[in-house]
Design a protein around this nucleic acid. Structure first.
Length: 441
DNA sequence: TCTGGGGTCCTAGGACCC
DNA sequence: TCTGGGGTCCTAGGACCC
């Protein structure tokens, strides 16, 4: 039996822990640049604010409905997440951290009343971190996700489902008839793995509810859609196709990208941004102990600015050998940018992605006919380089991000359109001593 | 005026092999 | 008229997730 535990409205809930006056108010958290809404409290959802909706479209609700907007405070959310995860992980032998706010638990071999365990998880997380959670149990991961959806919705919208299913919902202890009834009133788009496009195609084909999908013909579905949807269907019927992955394998790609505060046309400014992004991904790369085999760089104009000519080039450049060196990665990314850039375009976003990642410890042996250095010298160079990068990371960790950086990244601090605004960010209460919460007398 | 930033997996099609 | 057959590997792009 699997459980899915997730935090309700994670980012907003993190903010509310340190600012209880936000409770009961409509609150949204904004993306970088304060551009779009990336988290909404229930009250904000009730006002009709959509996920990823541009802020300027709903800003009028500030005055009209008391909507409160905050800039994203990812340092806070990340720290709150690891606290929550370590608590939840105590409840089952295996845990898969699936995203910043949710994890799967595998209760294989665990005895006891799962609903009671679920309630205990909720109580403990709430008491120890202040975060509200929902818990769903099911014999497959897809069913656990669905049970979680039911638990949350039953709590938020009384009458949508039986009240007993609110907050903690265990499909495992329901009869087939009860499960059928729940699935019959749940839209197919609520299922994990069914997004807008597939959802629309399914609806067109007469498959509107989860029950319709569960009863659909497997073979026909596979040929019309894909093996992915076939697995989803089987999982809905209780056949487990997706295992729990609790390995701590590193990521397969590492990215840093951002929209700018306003359009950028100059190469020099893009060079600063791209070297800055390359430095950040290099740091993340070393953190997970990998080496990058290639660098992918992109810049793009805004498809929303219809009056502008569009240009969205991208380029993937292989490295001679996998590297972890910020200097090489920055130089490679910058060269790619210089080759792609064309003057006269309003670029609004750029990104650097490291791909073809290798285990940092493994080094491909090579035969270099032109090498003049002896192998021992080469090994020393490698060691020096690792020490240099280690020192760079240590300094930036101790004195703050960007304390020491490659000279091409932000050599000036002039009027940079590319530096976004974050005017509404709350203090990093749990990770910065000088921003710690104060109890006023 | 103003439109997120990360990730994953699967598939189709082309290059190339014998 | 008619132009092989069976593979693998890689990449770009599309779908999805939060």
């Amino acid at each position: 039996m699997f459980a899915l535990v997730d935090v309700n409205n994670m980012y907003v809930s993190c903010e509310r822990v340190f600012k209880p006056s936000l409770n009961g108010r409509p609150v949204v958290v904004l993306s970088s640049n304060d551009g779009a809404c990336i988290a909404r409290s229930n009250e904000a959802k009730d006002l009709g604010v959509q996920m990823a909706q541009p802020w300027f479209q709903v800003q009028h609700l500030e005055r009209e409905a008391g909507l409160i907007a905050l800039s994203a405070n990812f340092e806070l959310y990340g720290d709150m997440s690891s606290r929550m995860m370590s608590i939840v992980g105590q409840y089952a032998p295996r845990q898969q951290i699936y995203s910043i706010d949710e994890c799967f638990l595998d209760f294989e071999g665990v005895r006891g009343d799962l609903v009671e365990i679920g309630r205990d998880i909720r109580r403990t997380v709430l008491q120890w971190t202040g975060l509200p959670t929902s818990v769903g149990f099911g014999p497959t991961k897809t069913l656990a996700k669905l049970a979680n959806h039911v638990a949350k919705t039953a709590d938020r919208k009384p009458g949508s489902y039986p009240a007993a299913l609110a907050q903690v919902c265990n499909f495992g202890e329901m009869t087939q008839a009860e499960l059928d009834a729940v699935m019959g009133v749940t839209e197919v788009g609520c299922v994990w793995g069914i997004g807008r496009r597939i959802g629309a195609r399914l609806t067109e084909a007469g498959i509107r509810t989860v029950r319709d999908l569960a009863n659909a013909d497997v073979t026909a579905l596979r040929s019309q859609f894909s093996v992915v949807l076939e697995k989803t269907l089987l999982e809905l019927r209780g056949t487990s196709c997706l295992g729990l992955d609790d390995t701590t394998a590193g990521r397969q790609q590492i990215m840093c990208s951002r929209s700018f505060g306003s359009a950028v046309t100059e190469l020099a400014e893009l060079e600063q941004v791209v070297s800055d992004f390359a430095s950040r991904v290099a740091e993340k790369l070393r953190q997970q102990g990998s080496a990058a085999g290639a660098v992918h760089v992109f810049i793009t104009t805004s498809p929303h600015r219809k009056q502008d000519r569009q240009h969205s080039p991208s380029m993937t450049v292989p490295m001679v050998r996998p590297t972890t060196d910020t200097r090489e990665l920055v130089a490679t990314a910058t060269r790619a940018l210089q080759r792609m850039y064309r003057p006269g375009f309003n670029y609004v976003k750029a990104g650097v992605m490291l791909v073809d990642l290798h285990d940092g410890g493994a080094r491909q042996g090579e035969l270099d006919l032109f090498a003049t250095d002896k192998p021992t010298v080469q090994a020393e160079v490698g060691r020096d380089r690792a020490q240099l990068m280690g020192a760079l990371d240590a300094l930036n960790h101790r004195f703050g991000k960007g304390a020491v950086r490659i000279a091409s990244a932000h050599h000036g601090r002039g009027t940079q359109a590319s530096v976004g605004k974050q005017e509404r960010r709350t203090p990093r209460y749990t990770t910065r001593l000088d921003e710690i919460a104060r109890a006023s007398s």
